[in-house]
Design a protein around this nucleic acid. Sequence first.
DNA 1: AGCCCCCCATCAGTGTTGCTTATCGAAGGT
DNA 2: ACCTTCGATAAGCAACACTGATGGGGGGCT
Lengths: 288, 288
Amino acid sequence: MDPHLLRTYVTVARVASFSEAARELGYTQSAVSQHIAALEQDLGAPLLTRRPVAPTAAGERLLEHAAPLLLRLDAARADVVRMVGAPEHGLTLAATPTALGSRTLAALPAAGVTLRVLAREEIPAAVARGGAELGLVDGLTAPNDPLRHPDVAPLTTYGVGEEPVCVLLPETHPLARRDGLRLADLVDARWLDAPDAGLPLAHLRRANGSGGFCPALRYEGTDVRTLAALAAAGHGLTLLPRAAATGVPGAVAVPLVAPRLVHRTELVHSGSPRGAAAALVDKLLERA
Amino acid sequence: MDPHLLRTYVTVARVASFSEAARELGYTQSAVSQHIAALEQDLGAPLLTRRPVAPTAAGERLLEHAAPLLLRLDAARADVVRMVGAPEHGLTLAATPTALGSRTLAALPAAGVTLRVLAREEIPAAVARGGAELGLVDGLTAPNDPLRHPDVAPLTTYGVGEEPVCVLLPETHPLARRDGLRLADLVDARWLDAPDAGLPLAHLRRANGSGGFCPALRYEGTDVRTLAALAAAGHGLTLLPRAAATGVPGAVAVPLVAPRLVHRTELVHSGSPRGAAAALVDKLLERA
DNA sequence: AGCCCCCCATCAGTGTTGCTTATCGAAGGT
DNA sequence: ACCTTCGATAAGCAACACTGATGGGGGGCT
């Protein structure tokens, strides 16, 4: 179970080709073939069908393990190297679009910041790997409940703020005049599924304890304005933190009153931040 | 960052000796020395001080990563091998002592079961490694909230039951006549700290949102009767699920009424259980 | 059908790696 | 001051991992 073997295995599984994987990894096709054979012999079972190349049942299982494993490996090396190497000057911050409130933006230092907008699940990974010193993740929870992050590595998280959640509806929507909405009444509505820009429907399903919330349109970008425009145009409802939901032309933001959910954003970093990262952490926390 | 190097590194750090680690791993002292040197060169920093052998700051950091990493590696191999190998006949169940309610015990098949009582945090690891097919973990949460497990591997968990929580007090205790107790009133009481037998104080601190709950006596065994006897003898309070707290001679069990916490037990397994394990899972879930 | 091409498996060869044995310098105990 | 113990280093050897070449089997195109 050498990590190298695992790495070639996942690439082979991804590109569904030995030769292509070899090219990608800079090996010969022969080496890749031997890697897979070694893994299969080690585990005592075929992992891939050949022609077409596709994971077997055991292979699927291994895939589930391999990705987080390799991620953790990268995270470990990055974490140790980071605390050894010189504190770089630039500061990279990975965040979801909805996690970037005005307070956060105001706290950023004037220069030398790289802001990287990523999908929600990629942020802990990016911070762990060292692609970003700090991460801002948001999500839906009960007040004061921490978010659930994929546990990719030993990361530290702090809550940096909670905000009410609103449903964004077109002005013409029959419910647009309400003062507050109950989630249970919206189970059968048409929803936008925008896991990277808005708040994921999966959080809603979990909060509501049941299924429903079938998506009418799926938006795969990370641009909140587009998402809001989609909602205003009547393509479906979406949830946004209040600040992001107000002032959208053609749409109104109605607070969600039941269940009691908040839009919570958390700061995540690995180990002990240094330099500009540490300063930003302090700045964000002192007012939290 | 070969796992072999990592493994020798953690053993060296554990036993604080190159030579001793070499003996334990079946290497020569020279090999161990080279392993550590390779790691240090790879990461670009010393990981251990020599004479005495102790981890440096970077080494400490690496240690935090290494243990879960190696665990996941074992878990991956065990998981794949498990679904390939023949379904063994015996069934091994790992559980905390307080997770074993009468309902669970009644559901066990008549023969061929190995029951392994472990500390709370070891159970997910044991299930992941394949040391047990199934695990039963318990803990304190808000009603219907899932427990938080250390995320050692992709494991599946189901709730199998929730039960009221009681404070176990000596009969002579001034609060023993109460119908219910509030946690906030007990912050400054003397508590037993029995992380493996009872319910960990850390859960309490988290639920109560603050510190306090300083332990008067620490009990490191896994025997609930002893723990109850300690409480009855006045060495400190402890929390137990109602079933385990009732009928203790010399002690009374008073329900905890605020905050609303329940003793929740969850069934954890990895992948798809087969044979006797699958039967037990069904049996436990159908009545949940 | 026949042909060709692409893909994966296998084999032999080779450079590198990883472990062992042997030896040295340094620190601590007696 | 001696001896023991511990970790670092050097040299040698065996196993390993990768390369390049070759072979067999399918699918697609004509």
